[in-house]
């Protein structure tokens, strides 16, 4: 039987040794984490399943390349745009502002 797993569905696949590193959580990662929890707590998303739905909509390339909280960020954005909580235009505008701020402050 051929295996055509979605990118997140890695149970049982071949993989190399487990990298035993433990990394510190960056401040923006805490913010993303808190955002996900508060989005749940405030009812912006109804349950973890909706978040998982967002994760499963990531492209295989994203799933491979993104870090853990990057995946959460993109999947929550997907879910909240999909639900109409925010618009894609507003999100893209805000991303441009943040990129400009970062360029100025670096």
């Amino acid at each position: 039987m051929s295996q055509t797993n979605d990118p997140h569905d890695v149970g049982g696949l071949e993989a190399g040794p487990v990298e035993r590193g433990e990394h510190d959580t960056a401040w923006w990662e805490w913010q993303v984490d808190a955002m996900v929890r508060l989005a749940l707590g405030k009812g912006l998303i109804s349950d973890f399943a909706e978040l998982r739905d967002g994760i499963e909509h990531l492209t295989p390339a994203d799933y491979e390349d993104l870090s853990y909280y990057e995946r959460w960020a993109k999947s929550l954005a997907y879910t909240l745009v999909d639900k109409g909580v925010v618009t894609r235009d507003a999100l893209e505008q805000k991303m441009r502002e943040i990129a400009e701020r970062q360029a100025q402050s670096s």
């Binding site: 993303v32 990057e70 929550l76 909240l80």
Partner: peptide, 17 residues
Amino acid sequence: EPTSEAARVGLALRELL
């Protein structure tokens, strides 16, 4: 500061919310 596009998605979403 995070500079990846995906991290900026998260920060932008946070500011909008």
